[in-house]
Computed example of a mutant assay.
Amino acid sequence: MTTPEAQPSSANAEAAKYRTKLREAEASLEAANARITAMQRREVAELAGKSLAVGADLFEIGGAELDSLLNDDGDVMPDAVQAAAEVLLAKRPGLANTHRPWGEVGGNAPGGASERKPTMADALRQR
């Protein structure tokens, strides 16, 4: 049979064990939330980078809040990011992405069909 003194000690030990588990769960949740927030910010910066030379400028210079660029489920809203980038560019046009894609740089003719151009040898053969 347990003595009355042993029960409070056992109860305290069990409560301490649950407090420790709670702290570990809270720390794990906080770390997961920090990773999610970092991923969301990277996604916003990538989307904003289509209009801005540096996508992170949307946060750093434009002062955009991440929460205003997310829907109720926590997903990034591309239209909201684009609108925020346009507002920033209206104030600071020098932040625009001036990088233009090169387009087709391959050796093939436009449209993918390779057309052979006549050479001097072709001209001599026709005689």
Rank of each mutant, 00 (worst) to 15 (best):
D72R: 08
A34C: 05
P118W: 14
D122A: 13
D72N: 09
A11F: 10
E30W: 04
N33Y: 12
S51Y: 08
R23D: 06
A45N: 07
A123L: 11
E104W: 07
H99M: 10
I61V: 09
R127T: 08
R116A: 15
V105W: 13
E5F: 15
G63M: 14
P118V: 15
E104H: 09
A15L: 12
P101K: 14
T2Y: 07
T2W: 11
A16S: 06
G111V: 06
A34D: 10
L70R: 00
E60F: 04
R42M: 11
A25D: 02
S10Q: 10
A27F: 03
A11S: 07
R19N: 04
P101M: 14
P118F: 15
M77T: 12
P4M: 06
R42W: 10
M77H: 07
S68E: 14
A48Y: 00
P93S: 11
D73K: 09
A34Q: 10
A83N: 09
K91E: 11
V44L: 03
T37L: 09
K91W: 02
P78A: 04
I61N: 00
N108F: 12
T2D: 11
L66M: 07
W102P: 01
P110R: 05
R19W: 02
A53C: 08
Q126L: 15
S68W: 09
D73C: 05
R125A: 08
Q82V: 13
I36A: 10
A96N: 06
E86T: 10
E60T: 14
D67I: 01
A16L: 11
G106Q: 03
P8V: 11
L52E: 01
P4I: 07
P4L: 08
A11C: 08
A109C: 15
S10M: 12
S28L: 02
G106P: 02
F59A: 08
A113M: 06
Q40N: 07
A56R: 08
K21D: 04
L22G: 07
P118Q: 15
R116F: 09
R125W: 12
P78Y: 06
R42Q: 15
I61S: 01
L47E: 04
R125E: 12
L66V: 05
V81H: 02
G94A: 11
G111F: 06
M39G: 06
S9Q: 15
K117C: 07
V76P: 02
V87K: 13
P4H: 05
D72E: 10
A25L: 03
N71A: 05
P93H: 07
A56T: 05
N12Y: 07
S28W: 00
T98S: 12
S28E: 01
R19G: 00
V105D: 12
R19Q: 05
L52D: 00
